[in-house]
């Protein structure tokens, strides 16, 4: 999926945080918030305005887990695999979702761009373990069955996340 370069929006985001190298992360977060990923068409322009190399932008973008250079699904499901969730069996939930969405560790987004499935190392909601989030909404005390049910509801548009 190629992204049409829109220098107006990108300049707005850059101006909001300031065109200096220290704003790199905030700007990339701004771009990602808008597009739910980082379209690579934006990189040359950001690099130029911030006076950094494109390679160093790419370097920052690939260092942090939250940045995605690939388009993400409409629903981003994150299964928490922090310690508390792990000892309360978060992996079977992940396995169930992966098999139902036909995804794997390498392939995290469905071809129709409706779902992205990821793990996260701790959401700090350990008291509710195991948890998963759908676009930042926390679903507590999950089981594989509850996860399947949630997925079904998302597919049918019964819940908005």
């Amino acid at each position: 999926m190629s992204h049409k370069f829109d220098s107006y929006t990108i300049d707005e985001i850059i101006d909001e945080f300031g065109a200096q190298p220290s704003s790199v992360i905030a700007i990339l977060q701004g771009v990602q918030e808008k597009h739910r990923y980082l379209p690579k068409e934006y990189f040359p322009h950001i690099a130029k305005r911030l006076g950094v190399s494109e390679a160093s932008l790419y370097s920052v973008a690939t260092f942090y887990e939250n940045f995605s250079l690939e388009p993400k699904g409409k629903y981003v499901l994150k299964v928490c695999d922090g310690t508390a969730c792990h000892v309360r069996k978060s992996i079977p939930i992940l396995d169930r979702l992966r098999s139902e969405l036909n995804l794997s560790e390498e392939k995290c987004t469905t071809d129709d761009l409706s779902f992205t499935l990821e793990t996260v190392s701790c959401l700090g909601a350990c008291g509710l373990a195991p948890v998963l989030t759908v676009n930042d909404k926390v679903y507590p005390a999950m089981t594989p069955d509850k996860a399947s049910e949630l997925l079904k509801q998302l597919k049918e548009g019964l819940v908005d996340a």
């Binding site: 992360i25 905030a26 939250n66």
Partner: peptide, 20 residues
């Protein structure tokens, strides 16, 4: 805001991250 890197809890990594 962090962007997803545990190592940023380390002081010099954290300041590097604030510096972009």
């Amino acid at each position: 805001q962090g962007a997803g890197a545990f190592v940023c809890g380390e002081g010099s990594a954290l300041t590097a991250s604030i510096e972009g």
